[in-house]
Nucleic acid binder design. Structure first.
Lengths: 254, 254
DNA sequence: AACTGTGTTTCACCATCCGGAACATTGATT
DNA sequence: AATCAATGTTCCGGATGGTGAAACACAGTT
């Protein structure tokens, strides 16, 4: 209500915002000292100190040699999101199998608040990526999810988030997106033609529960040079569909 | 300061405590409604409402059909803990290999604030367990970590947390624990003889970085009936040691 | 010994968090 | 339809307690 200038203040508890401002700052670095934190955020030193004291006291933040880290107690809370639906944990195993069998990076992705969120991942050395959020319209997984929505829902998404270009190949207008979604509904799988990042390709299929509720998307991705022809249009979609089906079966029968 | 009765209030930001009281409550259930939350916590309805509004606005909590859930944005933060050290992510892969090769439940465990914390896990259908905390003195993994500590450090742990009995087999006195730790240092691995839960056995080895810093522990566990004889004293320790060594090598050379 | 950069503590002010109660809304029951 | 119960939402005065500036303590450096 009233003027809505610049930064959306949002209603509610501003102290809580400060707390999470600190946690987000701790997330970025390996280990942060108090004064470094005051530099990065616009909190006063005593405020940062008091908040950190509270967080370490509760165990959500760990202090060692004057440096502060995110503690594992937060993992305990956040795991609720990843294990909420039994389908998610079923997908975890399939992601690993996919990664091993195809030798590509494999992920299970879910939509939340109009973002594609990495829930499980396999492949490559680093597995930083989990929890990261990507725009729906320029990911194979995101498009495969959008393809399951009604036109109204897709419209609402476009209105809320827009269709920003990430590369020259990104779909940036409404009609092209609708055409693409139709093609995806036809084929049963989506591809990513360097739409999010130059040189990166991918394939994705939707994952359904036994009662046909959309659970998320299984996807593999890698260098666009390799993701061409029947590999990307036959072999991978088949394999992905198999795994998605296995998740469904797992959910139906123990 | 002053009277320190019952619940340790601790110093700091009490609003933040309320926020996490809510998050912890959301963690327990599949989806919580506001009034249910006020029942479970001793927060007034308007307070709960205001906090939830803030948290959903920031994206840490998701609201659907009047029910509130932990959001994936918390995962993004907490992953910092799990990917902080490259050794952790190296361990992730080895845990999975262990699980597949041995067909037992395999875990990578780390010590934090005198608790054994599950960081990665493989095996069995549910993978709820990640982030969970266990007492150090009655887990194979915990004892293997204690065995790397100095006597003073172990004493401090005992003074702080005690040696509570979880089963008839739990080590509950200081001298027995010291004897056990000596045996572990000798052998290079620890076993769990139904010390945490009746009928459950396990084996663990320490994981070191290239510069001999203790990273955590690799462990497998399962029914005590199967965890006997040379399986638990030769085969599994050998296999675990191999994997721990591979983590070390991975850290040393890409 | 002076100095710079830390972490820690104190303190008075006033922002803002709180809880009760009123209001809105939904859905069930008669 | 109308009543009722249960829940979500908003409002508001009041005091709780979070806040920033500044003082203090401490370490390492020049």
């Amino acid at each position: 209500m009233g003027t809505n200038d610049g930064t959306e203040t949002g209603a509610g508890v501003s102290t809580t915002r400060k707390t999470f401002e600190i946690l987000e700052a701790l997330k970025e670095e390996e280990g942060v000292t108090i004064t470094e934190l005051t530099r990065r955020t616009d909190l006063s030193k005593s405020t940062a100190y008091r908040h950190l004291a509270t967080l370490t006291d509760m165990g959500y933040v760990i202090e060692r040699d004057g440096e502060y880290y995110i503690g594992f107690r937060l993992v305990e809370i956040s795991e609720q999101a990843r294990t909420r639906k039994t389908g998610y944990t079923a997908a975890k195993r399939k992601v690993f199998e996919l990664g091993q069998e195809t030798d590509e990076r494999a992920v299970f992705i879910v939509e939340e608040a109009y973002d594609a969120v990495y829930v499980y991942r396999h492949g490559s050395l680093t597995n930083t990526m989990i929890g990261k959020r990507r725009p729906l319209h320029c990911m194979a997984s995101g498009k495969v999810i959008l393809a399951e929505w009604t036109d109204d829902e897709v419209d609402a998404f476009i209105d809320a988030r827009g269709l920003d270009a990430h590369t020259d190949h990104t779909i940036t207008d409404r009609d092209s997106l609708y055409a693409e979604l139709d093609r995806i509904r036809d084929r049963g799988y989506a591809t990513n033609n360097e739409e999010f990042m130059e040189g990166m390709g991918g394939v994705a299929v939707p994952v359904f529960t036994p009662d046909d509720e959309l659970l998320g998307a299984l996807a593999v991705f890698g260098p666009a040079s390799r993701f061409t022809g029947e590999y990307v249009h036959d072999e991978l979609p088949d394999r992905l569909r198999d795994k998605a089906g296995e998740i469904r079966v797992t959910l139906a029968y123990g």
